[in-house]
Design a protein around this nucleic acid. Sequence first.
DNA 1: ACCATTATTGGATGACCGTTCAACAAAGAA
DNA 2: TTCTTTGTTGAACGGTCATCCAATAATGGT
Lengths: 194, 194
Amino acid sequence: MTMPKYKRLSPETRASELVQAGLQVLSRGGITAFTIENICKASGASRGLVGHYFGGKDGLLAACYGAAYAPLLESIAEDKAPLTLNGLIEELLSERHLRRDGMAIWLALWGEVAVNPVLQAEHLRHYRSYRTAIAQATARHFGRDAPAATDETLAAALIALLDGIWLEACIAPTEMDLGRARAAIEILLKGAAR
Amino acid sequence: MTMPKYKRLSPETRASELVQAGLQVLSRGGITAFTIENICKASGASRGLVGHYFGGKDGLLAACYGAAYAPLLESIAEDKAPLTLNGLIEELLSERHLRRDGMAIWLALWGEVAVNPVLQAEHLRHYRSYRTAIAQATARHFGRDAPAATDETLAAALIALLDGIWLEACIAPTEMDLGRARAAIEILLKGAAR
DNA sequence: ACCATTATTGGATGACCGTTCAACAAAGAA
DNA sequence: TTCTTTGTTGAACGGTCATCCAATAATGGT
């Protein structure tokens, strides 16, 4: 009986597993732990594969950034639910997004985006569609046909507020949990209805 | 004429210069650029001094984190101005805090705080006094003698909102400038007055 | 001018980094 | 079985990292 030295995976599967391992490493140790060695150990792959599938560490990081956005974009996808404002907020505060490991990924990535123009460009694309989706929800919520300038402002404010809540929940979990997050949004959103 | 090989500084001066250099490096290249070599080059010091004054890189990073908080704590210091809510907000949105380099420092640090318990403890101390100061301002703004639970919630919400605004202004400066930040806060704060 | 103090230097060291690539082997086809 | 394709391995490389510490030299007191 001969045990195979390794398992061959399809390129898509292997690439996906490397990305997932990259996200796991980011959430556990931040950007400084994002090394080829750590990632490959977490993925059960050998060091050479990162270069083979992503051209290098930066390529994998960009892929990880895109992958981090995926759950967010899914949550605001048109085909989902009716997308009322309240439903949208509840969804964004759900355990799917408020998990500590997921938030740590964002913190690790944001620090890199701040000094990496390539990632900034990628961020801008996603951010715009994200904000547009929220602006449409607020417009509907206030009975408008199409988003007005007010809705864009409100959407930008909401995104900033949510980002801040995720941030606090990650670096000071005792001070910001789901209950406080709901209360914070409610107290600020209460009077925006005009 | 013999030119001295180096200049002797007092321990306090030298330590302070290393911290400033550390902050500069963080703002320019994020946490991955926070290396002894980069810091000492920026500071005009030699590599050995970081170990001598801070015990190592981690010690310097902790000192930099404390130093990053300094401007924030100054802005909310009791002895300053009357600390009305509007004045406080205007101060926190002023050029002193909304500078891109200063915000990049926060982004670099947050990613590290998320995975470093020592920095988290330090954050908690500062965060609490920060929030208390804001809660007192909101209490006064709404004519209450002492901060109520509502004020703490509102303060936490405001801090999250401001953090989010700083974040967006840093990674997507075209989408979040001073004008939009003001508008975002106004639209959300308009109805919180109850 | 000399000495004691002490801030500072920078070479040495060992660990770890990302990348490259020739050799290898798993899996399917013939 | 044998061959071809192609996903995978891991040693080798040059570079950078943090840390240590013996040697050095700037400074102030005498």
